[in-house]
């Protein structure tokens, strides 16, 4: 049994806005083992990106954000940590890549200098040595002529190349956890495949655990060992990949799997989920999927519990009890 790397307990992230309190993440718990590849799946506005930023303690301070709960990373709780302590973790033990490779690199510094910055902070590398390492890292992520690219500015590279450079930067200090927030959404499918393949290889070679955030069930099906499904700020289901696809329990997961674009002979309408994702401000009590759920019951006006109904298979739905299916 692999060791626990990060354990999230009842994590809540809230913003105060002019329109009210936004409970973007509302009490989620999960864990990632060392070297494990986990997918966090959900539609826009479900809180998956905020979860990622919360784990890195990067929630934008401008919105008067508050983070509650525990984020136990290798035995230390990150929630009460100050920036000066987090510096030792960010980039060194836990790093992140972002959705839009066009905006996640500082446009006024070269690719090399941005990689070297992290190397300087965490490994004390300077000058030629640092540059040599930066070139090696760029080569590691399959960037051709890396000794030239190291001196390029971000705008001189294509989206795919920038995302590779981001990965090189994120992996520069061989972190134990890489958080990827929709890193291939902005890329073409053939470039997406290159990036996924690269991350899968690097993760396997270096034993880096992965939290891959996406709306695309197709990607996590082929990349991750465990999948977490999120809806309106809460977790609805968590299981290993095979189990989740073969035996989805939560009606939302079932609907997502049914609707995910796939290739099948024959056409026809798809039975859609009615309605839209609820507003995260002033959320009503009870199950958040209730008003779109085909299996909604009276009890659903109460809060369902997040529980392990089968070993390793977690779900929050009144259709299931701790002993398995009702």
């Amino acid at each position: 049994m692999a060791e626990k790397l990060i354990k999230v307990e009842d994590l809540k992230t809230q913003f105060t806005t002019k329109r009210g309190l936004v409970k973007a993440v509302d009490g989620i718990s999960f864990e990632i083992k060392k070297g494990e590849r986990v997918g966090l799946v959900g539609e826009s506005g479900c809180g998956k990106s905020v979860t990622a930023l919360s784990l890195m303690k990067l929630v934008p301070a401008a919105h008067n954000e508050r983070v509650f709960g525990k984020i136990i990373f290798k035995g230390q709780d990150l929630v009460p940590m100050k920036d000066s302590q987090l510096k030792e973790i960010r980039g060194k033990q836990m790093s992140m890549i972002f959705q839009d490779p066009m905006t996640s690199l500082d446009p006024v510094f070269t690719i090399g200098s941005q990689i070297m910055e992290a190397l300087g902070i965490h490994q004390g590398l300077k000058g030629k040595e640092s540059k040599k390492r930066a070139i090696e890292l760029l080569a590691l992520v399959n960037i051709p002529s890396s000794e030239m690219v190291v001196d390029y500015y971000p705008h001189q590279l294509s989206g795919g190349m920038r995302q590779r450079a981001m990965i090189a930067m994120a992996l520069s200090c061989e972190p134990e956890l890489l958080i990827a927030d929709e890193p291939t959404t902005a890329l073409d499918v053939s470039i997406q495949a290159q990036i996924i393949k690269l991350v899968r290889e690097l993760s396997a070679n270096k034993g880096t655990a992965l939290l891959w955030i996406t709306h695309d069930l197709g990607i996590v099906a082929h990349l991750c060992e465990k999948i977490i499904v999120m809806y309106a700020g809460k977790l609805v289901e968590m299981a290993d990949t095979m189990t989740l696809f073969e035996n989805p329990m939560h009606p939302y997961t079932q609907a997502l799997l049914r609707l995910a674009p796939k290739l099948e002979r024959g056409k026809g309408r798809m039975p859609p989920i009615p309605g839209t994702v609820p507003n995260l401000i002033d959320m009503p009590p009870g199950c958040r999927f209730a008003d779109r759920c085909p299996k909604c019951m009276d009890v659903c006006s109460q809060e369902p519990q997040w529980m392990e109904v089968e070993p390793g298979h977690w779900v929050s739905c009144f259709l299931y009890s701790k002993d398995g299916k009702n």
């Binding site: 990067l58 920036d83 960010r90 992140m96 972002f98 959705q99 996640s104 690199l105 910055e117």
Partner: peptide, 27 residues
């Protein structure tokens, strides 16, 4: 300060002061 690369810099472990005065101000 709203840009992704500010978050990306912080996620690399670059201290806030450096992020502000080296990267943010220049941009």
């Amino acid at each position: 300060l709203r840009q992704d690369y500010i978050k990306a810099l912080l996620s690399k472990g670059v201290p806030m002061r450096t992020v502000l005065f080296k990267h943010a101000v220049r941009n």
